[in-house]
Amino acid sequence: MADIHITIHNKTFATATEPTIADFTLSLVSGEFVCLVGASGCGKTTLLNIIADLDYDYDGDIVVGQQHKSPKIGYIFQNPRLLPWRTVRENIELALPDDYAGDVVDNLLDIMQLTPHQHVYADRLSLGMGRRVSIIRAFAVNPELLLMDEPFVSLDPPTARQVRALLLQLWQQRPHTVLFVTHDLREAITLADKLIFLSANPMQIISEVLVAIPRNERNNELAVENFRQQLLNEHPDIKQLL
């Protein structure tokens, strides 16, 4: 894995008079889990689409290591985007080359507790299980960068906690650089090594904060809440972004 540096001088939609993103620079250290936190509509998804080469209409540059190129991406959307007429395993395998190693998928299914359901068709899955399949599919391609766009936003709290815990277990066993979008500060603190807070009109970084809670204490809701309160007290400008 290599460090990734993203520079966007300007991103303006054709129907807009003002840029959505301007004078924006973001550096991701290899293996780092970074959460972007900002209000809805500030440009977070636009940023992910630019990084993923889904939007070419911008002025800027992406550097992976020393190469000016887009990184190999695994993209996890808000909607799992599974083919309902395919099974769990088939949906994962569609993203892989023909000569992929079957034990890789086996291991991922095991970590995400989906081995008993690997031959179930996608339209029979709960939303939480569908999210787990989309996470496996993204990890399976062994990307240089995992993009996650509020993947747990519509889950009930117990299911969201379960899937977050499984995601962290998978990430710790198979480290990847992750850029995770959320507007939930508690979720961001639970997951991230670093928090990046974003303004809008245009989107710019206003604060970067390292999460000081040891990872083995992230399931302690009181520790997370205490850090959240400390963060809001020290950075009062963050409150308007949530």
Rank of each mutant, 00 (worst) to 15 (best):
M1Q: 13
A2K: 13
I6A: 08
H9W: 00
F13I: 07
F13Y: 15
T17E: 13
P19W: 04
T20N: 00
T20Y: 00
I21W: 00
I21R: 00
F24S: 04
F24V: 01
T25H: 12
L26R: 04
L28P: 07
S30D: 15
F33A: 02
V34I: 14
C35W: 05
L36A: 08
V37R: 05
G38T: 06
A39D: 02
K44P: 05
T45M: 06
L48D: 08
I50K: 02
L54F: 14
L54N: 06
L54C: 03
D59A: 12
V63L: 07
V64P: 05
S70M: 05
K72L: 10
K72W: 02
K72R: 14
G74F: 11
F77S: 13
N79V: 02
R81F: 11
L82E: 09
L83H: 04
W85D: 06
T87L: 03
V88L: 13
V88F: 12
R89W: 01
E90A: 14
E93N: 10
L94W: 07
A95C: 10
A95D: 04
L96V: 05
P97I: 10
D98P: 01
G102D: 11
D103G: 00
V104Q: 12
N107L: 10
L109I: 08
D110T: 14
D110V: 05
M112F: 09
M112Y: 08
M112T: 04
L114Y: 07
T115C: 00
H117E: 13
Q118F: 02
Q118T: 04
V120E: 13
D123R: 13
R124Q: 15
R124A: 08
S126I: 07
G128L: 08
V133L: 03
V133D: 03
I135L: 13
A138R: 04
F139N: 06
A140G: 08
P143Y: 08
E144Y: 07
L147C: 09
M148K: 07
M148Y: 08
D149F: 10
P151S: 08
F152L: 09
V153W: 00
V153F: 02
P157S: 14
P157M: 12
R161E: 15
R161W: 11
Q162G: 01
Q162H: 13
Q162L: 14
V163C: 08
V163A: 06
V163N: 04
R164W: 08
R164P: 01
A165Y: 11
A165C: 05
L166V: 06
L168A: 11
Q169K: 15
Q169C: 02
Q169P: 00
L170G: 01
W171T: 07
Q172H: 15
Q173C: 06
P175Q: 05
L179Q: 01
L179W: 01
F180K: 09
F180T: 07
F180L: 05
F180M: 00
V181T: 03
T182W: 09
L185Q: 04
K194G: 01
L195V: 07
S199Q: 01
N201K: 15
P202R: 02
M203Q: 03
I205G: 03
I205E: 10
A212S: 15
P214C: 07
P214W: 06
N219G: 03
N219E: 15
N220R: 04
N220G: 02
L222K: 14
L222N: 12
V224I: 15
R228K: 14
R228N: 10
Q230H: 14
E234P: 00
H235D: 03
D237M: 14
